[in-house]
Amino acid sequence: SLLESPNSSLTEIEHLTQNVLKSYRETCQLRLEDLQLLRWETFTKEEVGSYQKKSMEEMWERCACHITEAIQYVVEFAKRMSGFMDLCQNDQIVLLKAGAMEVVLVRMCRAFNSENRTVFFEGKYASPELFKSLGCNELINSIFDFAHSLSSLHFSENEIALFTALVLINSNRPWLQEKSKVERLQNNLELAFKHMLRKNHREGILAKLPPKGKLRNLCYQHMEKLRSFRQMYPIIVHAVFPPLYKELFS
């Protein structure tokens, strides 16, 4: 009904909110409490050095596997969201193909310690230097800058849940077949998000949210870097990269 009725009641919006919060809680991959507990567990200099000495191929493969795992949780989040599975299969794929990585990047701010500019990676918090062997310092720094700016908003878990739902349900994605259905779900999610912010006196963050182009640009940079890596190591990508990662990004 959320996709068909002309107007949504406050009760419907409240149901949608509760559904999105529950779907998010069930699929958030890492618990915030655990991330907070490990907040100051950083890699030692020796450990950072050993990551930096890894080959570019090994580091790329590791990161591709972690991104793929994170994306699988986002797919599950989408599937549990009211209305998503009522969209046609083409549009489900379009939205996930365009938005899954963007959601992963937003979710990353939970695993980011802005006080020492580190991110949770393979059991501890890592600085950008740890990723040196990937050969994409500019992209890594842009992702860290993005996580830093998002952290300054001090998102609550509920805010992340609704914000990421809105990152995913975007009726402006190209190749949608039933744009109006996506628009309707997006409008309801926007109402739900704004209603929650108003209730918590947090409307101020609306003006500080990252522009949609920012996330799109980070994802574009990631795909460009993958393209360069693939030119250098086509066999590695073909043989050892996760199939879902290749399907989405190359």
Partner: peptide
């Protein structure tokens, strides 16, 4: 699109997850 995204399509169809 479904043809080009078989894994994503399968994940979406999988009701056991």
């Amino acid at each position: 699109l479904k043809e080009k995204h078989k894994i994503l399509h399968r994940l979406l169809q999988d009701s056991s997850s």
